[in-house]
């Protein structure tokens, strides 16, 4: 990895910058959650341009909801404090069952994927689920993993089929009306993945006349349709299918979450992320809106997960799964609370 590092590192350096400004954030949070939200948005970062539009899903996808939610959804990533009832009915339900039911992905390399050699699920999201199981049940192994397809994540939570979803799920204004999210445990953004040496340099007019691949129904698809920059679009069922098309020379670029794209780059050293992320996508653990105690409990787990500086479990998981694809990160994203 040489030329690719710059692009890949950008969001992580942004995370680092943001983490260093944690005291400021904490103060702002204490002053009031609306203020905190504003502060979070305004903290100057290297990717400031992208951050000016936080969590605004493209109009094509969730347009109708935007007008309503815009006023009371200044910061969807703000969650419930890990204080008060941490052992309520939802946590008791899990304890009675003796297993945490977690909806995960099996196809996202380094996040949630099943290693064909061992048959084991592993990745950054999976480690987090184990940490949650350990906190609630005292045993990281007491988990039942269910593979939940992207478009079934919200129904699976709402119907109670799963307790939590840890599946590279972006927190946004539309979704917080349907499910409850933990604090953000990762911050990703849409970015462009190309073969090394490609004339495509970013999500800009260098895409003119090129063929771009996105996953069907993804926010990336909506974004490319909104601003095609002269490119033509190919959609495929799964984001990984885009890498197949890219390797076969059927498309010139892939637009994707950089977190997932980093997992793709980790499978093919001859591709790289270019340009800056042009959206902000905080990932959260999704839970049922009624399971308030579970949300607080998971946030507590996340607090523990983040703490410990360079030796925090978060940093260790990051080093293990993501550092090679995304480069070095200094710290996890700071939690934000709304109560």
């Amino acid at each position: 990895m040489t030329g690719g590092d710059r692009g890949v590192n950008a969001p992580l350096r942004a995370l680092g910058t943001r983490a260093r400004s944690r005291p400021l954030l904490a103060a702002a949070t204490a002053a009031g959650c609306a203020l905190a939200a504003t502060a979070a948005v305004l903290v100057p970062t290297q990717t400031g341009a992208a951050r000016e539009r936080p969590d605004r899903p493209p109009a094509a996808v969730e347009g109708p909801a935007r007008g309503v939610s815009a006023t009371k959804c200044a910061n969807p990533a703000a969650s419930l404090r890990p204080t008060g009832d941490l052992d309520g009915p939802a946590v008791q339900r899990i304890k009675a069952r003796g297993k945490l039911i977690a909806g995960v992905d099996q196809n996202s390399y380094r996040w949630g994927y099943r290693n064909p050699a061992t048959g084991e699920l592993s990745g950054f999201d999976i480690d987090l689920v184990h940490a949650i199981a350990k906190d609630i049940l005292g045993d990281p192994g007491k988990v039942m993993f269910l593979a939940i397809p992207t478009n079934r994540r919200i129904p699976a939570v709402q119907s109670g089929k799963v307790d939590i979803i840890a599946r590279t799920m972006t927190i946004n204004c539309d979704r917080i009306k349907q499910v409850a999210f933990s604090t953000a445990y990762f911050e990703a953004g849409q970015q462009v993945l190309v073969p090394k040496g490609s004339p495509v340099k970013a999500f800009d007019d260098s895409l003119k006349g090129k063929k771009v691949c996105t996953a069907e129904g993804s926010t990336a698809e909506a974004k490319v349709r909104e601003e095609p920059h002269g490119s033509t679009l190919l959609t495929v069922p799964n984001h990984l299918d885009c890498l197949v098309r890219l390797q076969l020379g059927q498309v010139d670029a892939v637009v994707n979450d950089n977190a997932l794209a980093a997992g793709q780059a980790a499978q093919d050293p001859s591709v790289e992320l270019v340009g800056k992320p042009f959206t902000t996508e905080p990932y959260g653990v999704a839970m049922n809106l009624k399971d308030v105690d579970l949300v607080r409990r998971v946030n507590k787990v996340l607090e523990d997960y983040r703490s410990g500086g360079a030796n925090s479990p978060w940093m260790q998981a990051y080093q293990h799964w993501l550092a090679s694809g995304l480069g070095g990160a200094d710290a996890p994203p700071a939690p934000e609370y709304r109560d």
Binding site: Q106, N107, S108, Y109, Y113, R114, N115, P116, A117, N238, L240, D241, L243, V244, Q264, Q267, D268
Partner: peptide, 13 residues
């Protein structure tokens, strides 16, 4: 064989 999920995507293709 390298343990990469990309293999599954190739097989589906």
């Amino acid at each position: 064989r390298q343990g990469l999920p990309l293999g599954g995507a190739y097989l589906r293709y």
